[in-house]
Amino acid sequence: MEQRIGSSSQPLEGAGFDPAFVPGLTSPVSGKAEESAEDTEPEETQEAPEPEGTDEAPESEGADEAPEPGEEPVDGPVFEAADRRARIVADHKGVRLALDDQECEFRWDEIGAVETETGRFGKRYTVTVHTPDRRWYPIEIEAPARSRFKEWDEKLDAVLDAYFEDDAEQPAE
């Protein structure tokens, strides 16, 4: 009896594991093109960190908060909370959420409700933006201390009172 050392299963082949298995789905690549692609990849990776290290990122962040030409600065309440990954800003423009490299912005007329929640244990503060089309966008921010929850709730309530218009509160005609 013969015994093999190692796995007895053979590698699977087919379109589910290799898109190049289907003729015409991908363009054929010659050996020279693969070698030249390998040569160019290290150059691209060396160039990529340079733009990240420049001062362009802080300028672009400051450009979001600076008033646009023709727009007057608003002296209303502003709510900002951030941790190492997440950030939320609520001001006269609306609510902006950011998590890592993903961002979304909601104008006040696009928002159906804003909900806050704190965990019973831990230091996570959750803000959920609900839209009228029954979608919701939650974001969790880790607070430096649980005592910040009350401060953040007060600031966010002030912003919502100033800018958010709830249709249910308006008298019916």
Rank of each mutant, 00 (worst) to 15 (best):
A162K: 10
H92C: 06
W108K: 01
E72L: 10
Q102G: 11
F21R: 07
A66S: 12
A57T: 15
D157W: 01
D75I: 02
R146D: 12
V29D: 01
S27I: 10
E41P: 00
V29W: 01
V89T: 13
E13F: 08
E2A: 13
G53L: 15
L160P: 02
P138S: 10
Y125P: 05
Q3N: 02
A113Q: 10
D161S: 10
E59N: 09
A162R: 09
T45R: 15
A63E: 14
V29F: 04
A15S: 14
G94A: 05
E105R: 15
V29Y: 03
A90T: 03
E43M: 15
F164P: 00
D166K: 01
E80M: 03
A145K: 10
T40Q: 15
F21K: 03
D55I: 04
E80D: 08
P67G: 00
R4N: 08
I88W: 06
E169H: 04
D100T: 12
R85C: 04
T26H: 01
D91Y: 07
H92M: 07
F79R: 06
K32P: 03
L97A: 00
G122S: 01
I111C: 01
S36F: 00
S27A: 14
Q3L: 02
L156A: 05
F79L: 00
F17N: 07
R120D: 03
P138M: 07
E56N: 13
K93P: 01
L99V: 14
R4C: 04
Q10N: 10
E68T: 07
A90K: 00
R134A: 13
T118R: 13
G53F: 11
G76K: 06
E117L: 12
R4E: 08
E105W: 07
E154W: 00
I111S: 01
A57S: 13
I141S: 02
E154D: 12
A168R: 11
A66K: 13
R120P: 03
W152C: 06
F17D: 09
A20R: 15
R134E: 11
L12H: 07
